[in-house]
């Protein structure tokens, strides 16, 4: 299925969970925050929440800044 991840359209396996998506990108859950369609998903929901076709996801992390 197609989703928009961090502004880019990409294809992922149907019915993926957020945990599976993070795993496929080698991203530890403790170092990211995730939004689906503008709503924050809590970390403890990463395994249970399934991504739907055309969902808009943002995966953010902390970087250097002032």
């Amino acid at each position: 299925m197609e989703i928009t991840l961090n502004g880019k359209i990409m294809t992922i396996a149907d019915n993926s969970s957020i945990a599976e998506l993070l795993e496929s990108h080698n991203l530890p859950a403790v170092r990211v925050a995730v939004e689906i369609n503008g709503e924050i998903v809590r970390r403890h929901d990463f395994f249970s929440i399934r991504i739907k076709p055309h969902d808009r996801l943002e995966i953010v992390t902390l970087v250097g800044g002032g």
């Binding site: 991840l5 961090n6 502004g7 990108h25 080698n26 991203l27 170092r31 990211v32 925050a33 943002e58 995966i59 953010v60 992390t61 902390l62 970087v63 250097g64 800044g65 002032g66």
Partner: peptide
């Protein structure tokens, strides 16, 4: 120390270096 929030760069998936 201050930190900023930015999109995860999904390209270099094995770089593994996080500021934290």
């Amino acid at each position: 120390v201050t930190v900023a929030v930015r999109r995860e760069r999904l390209v270099d998936k094995n770089s593994g270096r996080n500021i934290l």
